[in-house]
C-alpha cells in the first residue's frame, strides 16, 4: 500500500514517508488540523469545567456582595499581581518557542520552553506562600474555616470558592508543566522541526488557556473590593 500510486477523482494521491504521519491520515496538513481541532475541543471542555466554579462565584457574590468585599481585602494583591505578570510572561515565551520551532531554531525553542517552565514553577511557589499564609490565618474553606475576626456572614464560602478555583487552576499549571517538560525533552532530541511541531503548538494552546483563565481569576478574586 505504501508505495502504491492511486489515481482517483482526477487527483494524484500518494503517501509520504514522513514518519510522523499516522496511517489513517491522508497528509500532514489533515493530521495537524485534526489534532488542532481536537485540542480546541479539549479547551472547550476546560472552559466549561472551570465554568461550574465561575457560576458558583457569580451566584454567591450576588447573594453576599458585602461579604466578598470585606473578605477579599485579606488576599494579597501584590502577590496576585506578581503571579499575573509571571503567567503573562510565560505565555509570551511559550508563543515565542512555537515561533522558534517554526523557524527551525531548535536552541531558541528549548530556551523559551525552559523559561516557560521556570515561570510556572515561580507561579506555584508564590501560590504556596499565599496558601500557607491563609492556612496560618485560619482562612480555610467550609467547615475548616477558623477566623473569628470577620463580621460578614458566610466568609467560609468565599474561601471554598477561592481554594476551589485557584486549586484547580494550580493543578492545571502542574499538568502543563509536565507536558511542556516532555515537549522540551522531545524538542531537545530533535523530534520537531518546521515540518512537524504539532505537540509544541498544542502545549502552547493549552498554556495560553491556563493563562486566560488566570486573567479572569485575578480581578475576580483579588481586585473586586
Amino acid at each position: 500500500m505504501e508505495n502504491a500510486t492511486q489515481i482517483e477523482l482526477g487527483r494524484v494521491n500518494y503517501h509520504h514517508h514522513n514518519p510522523n504521519l499516522a496511517h489513517h491520515f491522508h497528509d500532514m496538513e489533515q493530521q495537524h488540523e485534526s489534532i488542532k481541532l481536537g485540542v480546541w475541543l479539549f479547551l472547550v471542555t476546560e472552559v466549561l469545567l472551570f465554568g461550574g466554579l465561575f457560576c458558583f462565584y457569580a451566584i454567591y457574590r450576588a447573594w453576599h456582595p458585602e461579604m466578598f468585599i470585606e473578605v477579599n481585602q485579606l488576599l494579597d494583591v501584590k502577590l496576585g499581581a506578581l503571579n499575573t505578570l509571571v503567567l503573562i510572561f510565560s505565555s509570551v515565551t511559550v508563543a515565542l518557542s512555537i515561533r522558534s520551532i517554526q523557524m527551525d531554531n531548535k536552541k531558541q525553542a528549548v530556551m523559551f520552553l525552559a523559561i516557560t517552565i521556570i515561570c510556572a514553577a515561580i507561579f506555584l511557589v508564590v501560590k504556596y506562600f499565599e496558601y500557607s499564609h491563609k492556612i496560618h490565618e485560619g482562612l480555610l474553606p467550609g467547615k475548616y474555616f477558623a477566623n473569628p475576626d470577620i463580621a460578614a456572614v458566610n466568609p467560609h464560602i468565599f474561601f471554598s470558592i477561592y481554594f476551589g478555583m485557584t486549586g484547580l487552576h494550580a493543578l492545571h499549571i502542574l499538568g502543563g508543566m509536565i507536558f511542556l517538560t516532555w515537549v522540551l525533552i522531545r524538542t531537545h532530541m530533535r523530534a520537531y522541526s518546521s515540518s512537524y511541531y504539532t505537540p509544541v503548538e498544542m502545549g502552547g494552546l493549552y498554556w495560553h488557556l491556563v493563562d486566560l483563565i488566570w486573567i479572569y481569576l485575578f480581578p475576580l478574586l483579588y481586585l473586586i473590593g
Binding site: L49, G52, G142, K143, G164
Partner: peptide, 24 residues
C-alpha cells in the same frame, strides 16, 4: 463535549462537600 465537564465539576464539588465540608 459541552455538557459533560459541568457534571465533572459538580460531582467533584459533591465529593468535596462530603469529604471536606466546603459548605456550598
Amino acid at each position: 463535549v459541552l455538557a459533560t465537564p459541568v457534571l465533572g465539576i459538580t460531582l467533584l464539588l459533591l465529593i468535596m462537600e462530603k469529604v471536606g465540608g466546603i459548605g456550598i
